[in-house]
Structure formats: C-alpha cells, structure tokens
C-alpha cells in the first residue's frame, strides 16, 4: 500500500454533489463537529465489500448523478445504491457487483431512476485527507474529503487511490440486498426522548399516517410533511442529537436528522430511526411516501448486528477505531 496514493480517476464533469465518505468522524462531537459518513450506510458498505475493501474504506457518494470519471489505470470497482443511469463507455454499468475498468474507461452518472445516492468504491480505497481522524467530507464544516477542506469533487480533480496488490474476488450482492428505493418505505423508529409529551392523536398520526418526503432534504436532514404533530414541549434546552433523531419543530412537521446534522438542538423528538432506516430514508426522492414503525430494541439491534457482521465481524469499534 502506498501512502502517497496512485492516480485513480480524473473528474471530467461534476453533477450536483459528489463527496468522499469513509465511515464517519467519531469522538469529536463534543467539539461541535458532526459525524459525516455515508448517508446510505447499507449501500456504502456493500460497495466497499464488493470492491474487496475492509469496513471503513473511503468511497464516493454521488448524489443525483451528473458525474463523469475517466479511469487513469486498470481498476477494480463496485457501484451500489441508487440507479443513476450509470454507463461505462456508454454501455449500462452493472451495479451491486465487482467490475473491472481498463485505463481510459469513462464512467458516467446520468439521472436518477431509482434512489438518490450511488456509491462507488475502488479496490484499495480512495485516498482522502484525514481530518480529526476521518476523511468524511462535510461541506458545511469545510472538513475532510480529498483536500481536507470539505470540497466536493470538481471538474479537473485527480482522485487518488491506495494501491492494492490483491485482486478482489468477483462478487455480487444477493438480490435481497439490491433494494428498490421506489417502493414505499417503512422506517423503524426507536421511541425515546420527548415521545411521552406528544398528544395521543399525534402519536397515532406519527405511526399511522403516510409522510411525504419534502424538497428540503439534504445530508443534514430530511423534512417530512403530513398531519401536524403536537407536543406539549415546544422548545427545549439544547441537547445532543444522535443519528436518525426525528425532531418536531413548532410547525408540527418532523425532520429526520442524518449524518451531517448539527450536534446539538432544541426541538422535541419522537425518538431515533435505526441506522438502516436512516439509510433507507436517504435514498427517498422528494414526493415519495414513508411510514414510521415503532420498533423494539432487540429486533433492530439484532438486525443491525447481522448487517455489520456481513462486512467486518464484531471486532471493530470504539472511538479510536477508524473502522467504526
């Protein structure tokens, strides 16, 4: 593995947003620094796995398409997540499987057909500039990414990769993992926080109504519209916010908070989406409908452990681990 990295891709054109993301930034939230990392952890983990990378390698998160990359050398890659009409040399590129590119191949991301965010992992992993222990790119904080300054990919950028001598096995994700993001989503929510302060009617609505994904959705959070939820607490003393928290501002319309959320906030919350539910929501297009399902800790924890065991067993973790 070369520390300086090797040429991997050249950026011929950019779209709305393409960011480098490793697993995220941990052990720093008391400084006001957010988590970052892939909005869709599920698809990101599969991309790395199919490219033969360990948990935590940095991959590209491409939102909405528009990106065109040219391979500098022969590369082994994997594409997962959203179907953004991706082509390789103008032919449809296979997703959810290991792919081999030749030097000079053109990888083009078109427009979204199914889902919102695609992930591109390269064997060896992309080489970012780690800041505060992570290369996760957070534009708002100007931290991480290829330059360490939180800059999204720009036309003309050269993307470096870590060299790897191993040729990854050709793999394909099981069909059950290749999600259809167009289907209505049911999102597991672990009740908590101020849930007891919402009115009975609002709790009924929260878990029975259909919620529409609003245009105002980004890596900080996704706003949902539907019946107005009422809480006897209207504003709190600000407190820490964890991934997937569903907060309800005074307008009664919930906001599910994702990877780039502010670290503390003062709106009452219903609880937290599970990490996999937050991943699923991150693939929803504006206008799609979702439902919340009150979930128990045992089932959701078992599900999350199974997901992680697929990629890395359970030996990793802790604030000092880059692989968390």
């Amino acid at each position: 593995m070369s520390d300086s990295g090797l040429n991997g891709f050249r950026v011929a054109r950019t779209g709305p947003l393409a960011l480098l993301q490793d697993a995220g930034r941990f052990g720093v939230r008391h400084l006001g620094v957010t988590q970052g990392g892939p909005a869709d952890l599920h698809a990101w983990a599969w991309a790395n796995h199919l490219a033969g990378n360990p948990w935590g390698a940095a991959a590209l998160e491409i939102t909405f398409g528009g990106l065109v990359l040219i391979a500098d050398r022969d590369l082994t890659i994997a594409l997962t997540g959203a179907d953004l009409s991706i082509t390789c040399n103008r032919h449809p590129a296979g997703r959810w499987q290991t792919l081999n590119l030749r030097a000079g191949d053109t990888l083009a991301f078109g427009t979204p057909i199914n889902g919102l965010r695609a992930y591109l992992a390269v064997a060896g992993g992309f080489r970012g500039d780690a800041v505060l222990g992570s290369a996760a790119c957070v534009v708002r904080e100007q931290i991480g990414g290829f330059d360490g300054r939180g800059t999204p990919l720009r036309e003309g950028d050269g993307l470096t990769v870590y060299g790897t001598s191993a040729t990854p096995a050709q793999r394909m994700a099981p069909h059950s993992e290749q999600q259809d993001y167009r289907l209505p989503a049911t999102l597991d929510l672990l009740p908590g926080a101020q849930i007891a302060s919402f009115t009975g009617r609002s709790l009924f609505d929260a878990f029975n109504a259909e919620w529409q994904v609003d245009q105002r959705a980004d890596r900080m959070g996704v706003r949902l519209t539907g019946p107005r939820l009422q809480c006897s607490v209207t504003s709190l003393v600000s407190e820490g916010i964890s991934l997937g928290a569903v907060q309800v501002p005074p307008d009664g319309q919930p906001i599910a908070l994702l990877n780039d959320r502010q670290t503390i906030g003062g709106y009452p919350r219903l609880g937290n989406l599970t990490p996999l539910a937050a991943s699923r929501l991150a693939q929803c297009m504006p206008g799609q409908t979702v439902r919340f399902r009150a979930a128990g800790i045992d089932r959701t924890l078992r599900q999350y452990r199974q997901f992680r065991e697929e990629f890395c067993g359970l030996s990793h973790g802790g604030r000092d681990s880059p692989h968390l």
Binding site: F26, G27, V28, R29, E239, G318, R319, D320
Partner: peptide
C-alpha cells in the same frame, strides 16, 4: 474504548 462520543450540553 467502548465509548464512541460524549455530547455535553
């Protein structure tokens, strides 16, 4: 080292 983050407010 099982601690990941502490967010005081």
């Amino acid at each position: 080292d099982t601690l990941v983050d502490l967010v005081p407010s």
